[in-house]
Design a protein around this nucleic acid. Structure first.
Lengths: 210, 210
DNA sequence: GTCTATAGATGGATAGAC
DNA sequence: GTCTATCCATCTATAGAC
């Protein structure tokens, strides 16, 4: 879908993608002009049309490519057969990836509205494929009695939203390192599905009897 | 800030807000023209300028007004002194409110980028005031030993993100009622901070010893 | 307070030279 | 493959009649 004309692996092609990613993430697709993107690359606006047929195709390429890479990386993550460990591995992967690819993740959520129907559907299919990975872990874990959850689909959406939220507040150089943040989220997610360390028990029981 | 000219409580003023809210939520601020808003109200574009000085003021009014009403409603919610109950009450309030005001919530997150610096700051201050309510509940609860959390600020952001996420997938007429969804989120949030029902314990211990 | 009409700017996209 | 030049649509915002 991406390389439309005779431009395969051109330097400009990649630079246009990168500039568009940067600008879309900061100002939004609709607020960014082709001239701005071109200026950031150092070419004239007309030159972009040698690599993308129009602005919409540029956005669509960014989003579908992002989803494909996310799924590919997800499938390459370490996985355990034990639901408890599989969930922890998923959480670590998701947090890391969503911190590493902040701009891609951001526009993949914010710019869905600006995709034309066909492009929208393509991204949605990929997104659902990704979300299904977590839902299956939850379903299998619940069936095996490893998790205490009321509803696997909702739990999946809730966990994804919780984790992806890191994208909105995390900045490098803040109070916490990426590793620390990862640990905090792992613990919260595990607890949210009913997996906890013994120490957690005491406080709750004390509260219960207060 | 809102009523700029001599228009206090005009019918058109409210209808313009309503139309803009609807259109911004569906297509995005930058993609919606003053003409479209006017057409939805049934007036000409120029008429909008009798109520708002420009498009930016219209967006800003929608977002700050939403944040003010959110905070007002939040302060009017039932509250317990017991951290465990206070958290549950906050969760119920947040879920209900974010389902009831789906469009307002949506643009309050999506259109922040399109606010000019001063308007952006105003909304951010209000948002932080709201988020602080949850953070204080978590901090107090952790201090009292009611919650098992590693970091109150991150836990707060994680919970807010988890709950607000309902906005992206919930549709009336779906598989679950609002009440059912509320219960699922209450349970997940309580568990995420280490508060759980006894039954949850067994599964985890079994998994631990598997 | 709303209308019509329009100024003035900027947008996406194309044509044709090099 | 990039440039310059430009078409044409559309946008925000204003002016002045009613």
């Amino acid at each position: 879908m991406a390389r439309t004309v005779g431009s395969v692996g051109t330097k400009t092609f990649d630079e246009v993608r990168k500039a568009a990613l940067y600008l879309f993430a900061r100002h939004g697709y609709a607020s960014v002009s082709m001239r701005q993107i071109a200026a950031r690359v150092g070419v004239q606006a007309g030159a972009i049309y040698n690599h993308f047929p129009n602005k919409q195709a540029l956005l669509s390429d960014l989003l579908t490519q992002h989803m494909r890479e996310l799924i590919e990386a997800c499938e390459a993550r370490p996985t355990s057969k034990l639901p408890l460990n599989a969930l922890e591995q998923f959480v670590r992967f998701h947090i890391r990836y969503h911190i590493d690819r902040a701009d891609e993740v951001f526009i993949a959520y914010m710019e869905l509205r600006n995709l034309e129907p066909e492009n929208f559907r393509e991204v949605q299919v990929l997104r659902q494929r990704y979300e299904r990975v977590l839902r299956d872990i939850l379903r299998d874990g619940a069936k095996a009695g490893a998790f205490e959850i009321s509803d696997a689909p909702v739990a999946g959406m809730a966990i994804i939203a919780m984790l992806t939220g890191v994208n909105t507040w995390f900045r490098y150089g803040g109070r916490l390192s990426v590793s620390q943040i990862e640990e905090i989220y792992v613990k919260m997610v595990m607890q949210s599905v009913g997996v906890f360390e013994p120490t957690a028990l005491l406080g709750a029981l004390m509260e219960e009897n207060a």
